[in-house]
Computed example of a mutant assay.
Amino acid sequence: MKYFDIMNTSSNNEGLEFNEKKYEQFMRYKDLIQEWNEKVNLTAIKEDEEIVKKHFIDSIKVFKFKELKSAKNIIDIGTGGGFPGIPMKIIKPEINIVLLDSLNKRINFLNEVIKELQLKNIKAIHGRAEDFAQEAQYREKFDVAVSRAVANLTVLSEFCIPYVKVGGYFVAMKGPAVEEEIKSSKNAIRMLGGHIEHIEKVQIEDSDFNHNLVIIRKIAQTHKKYPRKAGMVTKNPLV
């Protein structure tokens, strides 16, 4: 139980329960990441301790945003290897989570993780964020959209905000230097019906790793023309 104490401390610091069953799920998840990473590009982070701190604890830290604890329906957009969605599900099993990714190989991996860890009320779907956001069963249906995807905040907001119901939140997990991104994305976020509420600074215990949670509240419905068609969002970002 090499990493139990740091994961337990980190969870408790955010007011979350941690136990041996959850720890075992995380360790099995770690093993699956390392096994599948041989054939599918899931992460450049491969060492045990790095996976625990930079993927698992980092994902758990999204709950530093307190309102997230009462959210029932969450979508993780551009989830990749399942971050932050699967750690969120392990640590708080009662939430409903959708994992969205555009690469089918990663969806196959996520389905294997869901099966192996015996997770309930979670599904992985294959497709583009801009396509599913136009479908009635997903558009403005979530309490929270989260994303740790590597994209500019303006682009990420157009992908994510349309999924959030009015009164809900988009939580973007960003690196330590985010001020310029925030400044340049404010108008686009307003156009999409959002408002930057605050920035939550996050420090990972027992490390020098830190980042920010950009908390965006959905204050108005997103116009049906957003998100735009595939390719348009990244080629011509909103200004």
Score class of each variant (00 low, 15 high):
Ile125Arg: 08
Phe56Gln: 08
Gly127Pro: 03
Gly82Leu: 14
Ala124Phe: 01
Ile45Val: 12
Ser70Glu: 14
Glu112Lys: 15
Met27Asp: 00
Leu103Phe: 07
Leu119Lys: 11
Phe56Lys: 08
Leu103Ser: 02
Asp76Pro: 11
Trp36Glu: 06
Lys120Ala: 02
Ala129Lys: 13
Ile107Asp: 01
Val144Leu: 02
Thr43Ala: 00
Glu130Thr: 06
Glu140Ala: 08
Ile91Lys: 08
Asp131Tyr: 06
Ile51Phe: 03
Ile90Thr: 03
Phe63Glu: 08
Asn73His: 12
Phe65Lys: 05
Lys115Asp: 07
Glu67Ser: 12
Lys30Glu: 06
Val40His: 09
Lys61Asn: 12
Asn108Gly: 09
Val113Cys: 08
Pro84Ile: 04
Lys120Thr: 07
Ser70Gly: 04
Lys39Val: 13
Gln134Asn: 13
Gln134Ser: 10
Pro93Glu: 12
Leu100Ile: 10
Ile74Tyr: 03
Val146Leu: 11
Glu35Arg: 08
Ile91Cys: 05
Glu116Ser: 15
Phe142Trp: 07
Asp76Gly: 11
Met27Ile: 14
Asp48Phe: 04
Gly82Arg: 13
Ile125Asn: 02
Glu35Ile: 10
Arg128Thr: 07
Glu38Ile: 10
Asp48Glu: 09
Lys66Ser: 09
Gln34Ile: 14
Ile60Trp: 10
Glu47Asn: 05
Ala44Ile: 07
Leu117Asp: 10
Ile107Leu: 02
Arg128Gln: 04
Glu112Thr: 15
Gln34Lys: 15
Asp131Thr: 14
Lys66Trp: 01
Arg106Lys: 15
Gly81Leu: 03
Phe65Val: 13
Trp36Arg: 06
Ile122Pro: 04
Lys54Thr: 06
Ile33Gln: 07
Asn108Ala: 12
Ala145Arg: 01
Lys30Ser: 01
Gln134Trp: 04
Leu100Tyr: 09
Ile90Met: 09
Lys61His: 14
Pro87Gly: 10
Lys64Leu: 05
Leu110Thr: 09
Thr43Asp: 00
Gly78Thr: 09
Gly85Ile: 12
Asp101Val: 08
Lys89Gly: 09
Ala71Leu: 08
Ile60His: 10
Phe109Cys: 06
Trp36Leu: 05
Ser59Trp: 12
Gly85Pro: 03
Thr79Met: 10
Met27Trp: 00
Phe63Thr: 06
Ile91Pro: 06
Lys53Ala: 01
Pro87Thr: 11
Asn41Tyr: 00
Asn41Ala: 00
Gln118Trp: 02
Lys54Phe: 10
